[in-house]
Amino acid sequence: MGAADIVPGVSGGTIAFITGIYFRLLEAISALPEAFIRHLVRGQLREFWRACDGTFLLCLLAGILASIATLASAISYALTEYSILIWSFFFGLIVASVWHVGRQVRHYQPALLLPLVVGTVFAWWVTTLSGSPLSPSMPVFFGAGALAICAMILPGISGSFILVILGMYVPVLDAIRSLNLVVLGVFAVGCLVGLLSVARVITWAFHRYHDLVLALLTGFMVGALNKVWPWKETLSWRTNSAGEQVPLSEASVSPMGYAELTGEESQLLLAIACAIAGLLLVLLVEWVGGKRQSAPSH
């Protein structure tokens, strides 16, 4: 999830969904406020830990933070040097995730087409937005954290892409690289506030409108495919913190159109291979998860 959340266009919520931990994560986060009031303030640490599934949350958080700390630079480098192949891999990942999430619907009916279309159109529209830089003050870091984490927990909507739209992606990455603990602390508090609020809403919605929510999330992922399409035409540029020119707004083009526009190879065959690898990875994760769930417990 940490590796996915670094990449604008890929959702950590999607990774949680295809690995089978999404609903457990929502339940654990939703239980935190009540567990805090009922147990932690009374000094009942063991009961608090059990009520909020503390070991699961701690392991997940440690994995996310370790991945962000170790992979932020590597993923940035890979996206610069091998952008078509990396985006192709993510494209295959999300295509398989669409199939995986769609299969979770219990009762297929025509009424589900509406949330599917709404989710697709909304996510597609979000991917076409251009970034508008904000002044990176402490309240802005707090608000950016709250908005980004809400997106991160939803399959198909990328929290890091929300940061790109807000113009806060580079300041947050810079804070991670420089270990600016004050900025990261404010950002983390914003994430916590957003996470606690949105998790309860999503959990309630799943319990009441399971199939409708899944159709909406499937639409989110379909719409997000526009962002991870490997071949892009750059429409405008911005200057990053290192003084380098990087794309600000892009439009998807065909592999042949990309080759004509840029004079570079489309790497079509390698891109297809990477997309298939991403698709197979999701299927492998789903198969392993299914085997573990069906294995008898001792």
Rank of each mutant, 00 (worst) to 15 (best):
V288W: 12
V170T: 15
A242C: 11
L269C: 10
S294K: 15
L61H: 06
V117D: 00
V193E: 04
L32S: 07
A271T: 05
W237K: 08
F141I: 00
R50L: 08
E81P: 03
A72Q: 14
K291N: 08
L166T: 04
A146S: 11
S252F: 01
L32W: 03
C52D: 00
T262Q: 09
G145T: 09
G12T: 10
P139I: 07
A35H: 02
D53W: 08
A275H: 04
G131K: 08
S130H: 12
S97F: 03
L60A: 11
W237I: 08
G290K: 12
Y258N: 05
I162F: 00
G143V: 04
V228C: 05
V172G: 04
A295W: 00
Y209D: 09
M138Q: 08
S67V: 03
V101E: 02
N180A: 14
F142L: 14
V213Y: 07
R238T: 14
I149A: 00
R38S: 10
A146V: 02
G278L: 08
L65H: 06
E47L: 12
V213E: 01
D53P: 05
P255T: 01
V121F: 12
I276R: 02
A4K: 03
D53K: 12
A251N: 13
H210P: 01
K291I: 11
L112K: 06
L179Y: 13
F220D: 01
T14F: 07
L60T: 09
S30W: 05
S83H: 15
P296W: 02
Q104S: 14
I64H: 03
G131S: 15
F36A: 11
T234Y: 02
I153R: 02
I94G: 07
V172D: 01
A215L: 09
L281S: 08
A275P: 00
P255E: 03
Y108F: 15
S73P: 05
G92V: 10
C52T: 10
V201Q: 02
H298A: 13
S266T: 04
Q109P: 04
L284R: 11
L60M: 14
P139H: 10
A16R: 05
V121A: 15
S249Y: 11
I21Y: 06
T14A: 10
Y258D: 02
I272F: 07
W125D: 09
P115V: 08
I37P: 00
R46L: 13
G102I: 12
F206N: 05
W287P: 06
L129S: 07
A295T: 06
I75N: 07
T127E: 03
F48N: 01
L212C: 11
H210N: 13
I86V: 15
F91T: 15
V201F: 14
L217Q: 06
I86T: 11
L71V: 11
I176S: 11
